[in-house]
């Protein structure tokens, strides 16, 4: 039996909403429900009534450079989905909210702090037999004035990661153990995942991202269970300077969300270049 969100001991429990809460706010004009998925066919197949889609590839990335959208693009996106700076944005998605937390993280680069994750994501909503439809809603366009994207607090770049490694500061590699050891890149017939070298950034702890959720319903584990994993088992300091990474920064945004919002870690950055950058860089240290 999963405890109610308020009873799980999170430092910032207000970043989560339950499926019950979401169901009660489907027609709330101050709330915009946003689906963000790994599988692009899911939203058009059916979704929570009134929900809009924010697609990682189409909506959040620059189409040319490997980077996220900039201020003007974010303003246009928010206008298109009918969001103002005051709108509460509730994200949900597939794979235990993997891509929902990624979208949430990108929104934080633009300071849209009135944002939540629906605990349990799409799978929990579906399992509970709640309503879904195929109607793609249209909301009146808004005027949204965003600040310039602020990368320095929650995003890490490769040169910063290199200095971080040299200083012996902690990193969390949230990929699977086979990716962490580099074994995966050497599997025969295995599709290459965009990196020339396998392994991990020296000193990184391996904590696969999905350990933070209850496998039966996709909800987040309690603060005590999460502390057991990240603080006691891995020895991460809540006040430490920590960088999380995976392959392209999507899974590590989930861990960033857990550490920052649920456990209250004060200084966690997501290295979105991740292994597809580090595993291709010339002359950077790699551990196996």
């Amino acid at each position: 039996m999963t405890l109610p969100i308020a009873e799980r001991g999170y430092v910032h429990p207000g970043v989560l909403v339950s499926t019950d809460w979401t169901a009660e706010h489907l027609n709330d004009p101050s709330v915009r429900i946003v689906e963000s998925n790994e599988d692009p066919l899911l939203y058009p197949s059916r979704h929570i009534p009134g929900a809009v889609q924010v697609d990682w590839t189409h909506d959040l990335n620059d189409p040319v450079r490997r980077d996220y959208l900039k201020k003007a693009g974010f303003e246009a996106l928010m206008s298109r989905i009918g969001v103002t700076p005051e709108t509460m944005v509730v994200f949900y998605g597939d794979k235990n909210n993997w891509w929902a937390t990624y979208a949430y993280w990108v929104f934080q680069l633009f300071g849209h702090s009135n944002a939540k994750i629906m605990d349990g994501g799409r799978a929990k909503w579906e399992k509970e037999g709640r309503p879904m439809d195929r109607i793609v809603p249209e909301y009146p366009a808004t005027i949204y004035h965003a600040p310039d994207r602020d990368d320095h607090k929650i995003r890490a770049f490769r040169d910063q990661v290199l200095k971080h490694v040299e200083a012996g500061r902690p990193l969390v590699d949230v990929r699977s153990p086979a990716e962490y050891t580099g074994e995966k890149l050497h599997m025969p017939e295995y599709p290459q995942e965009g990196a020339l070298r396998g392994g991990h950034i020296p000193g990184a702890k391996n904590v696969p991202w999905a350990r933070a959720v209850n496998p039966e319903d996709g909800t987040f584990k309690t603060a005590e269970e999460l502390r057991q994993i990240y603080e006691h088992e891995q020895g991460l300091d809540p006040n430490g300077d920590i960088i999380a990474y995976c392959r392209i920064g999507e899974r590590s945004s989930h861990t960033w969300f857990v550490l920052t919002n649920l456990l209250g870690f004060s200084n966690v950055r997501n290295y979105d270049g991740s292994w597809t950058e580090w595993g291709n860089l010339v002359d950077v240290p790699i551990e196996k």
Partner: peptide, 22 residues
């Protein structure tokens, strides 16, 4: 599926084809 699918999604779908090929 289009060129814009994510790297992970593309790798998974190509993996299905690789299994069939094998």
């Amino acid at each position: 599926f289009g060129k814009e699918i994510s790297m992970g999604k593309g790798a998974g779908l190509m993996g299905i084809i690789s299994m069939v090929q094998n």
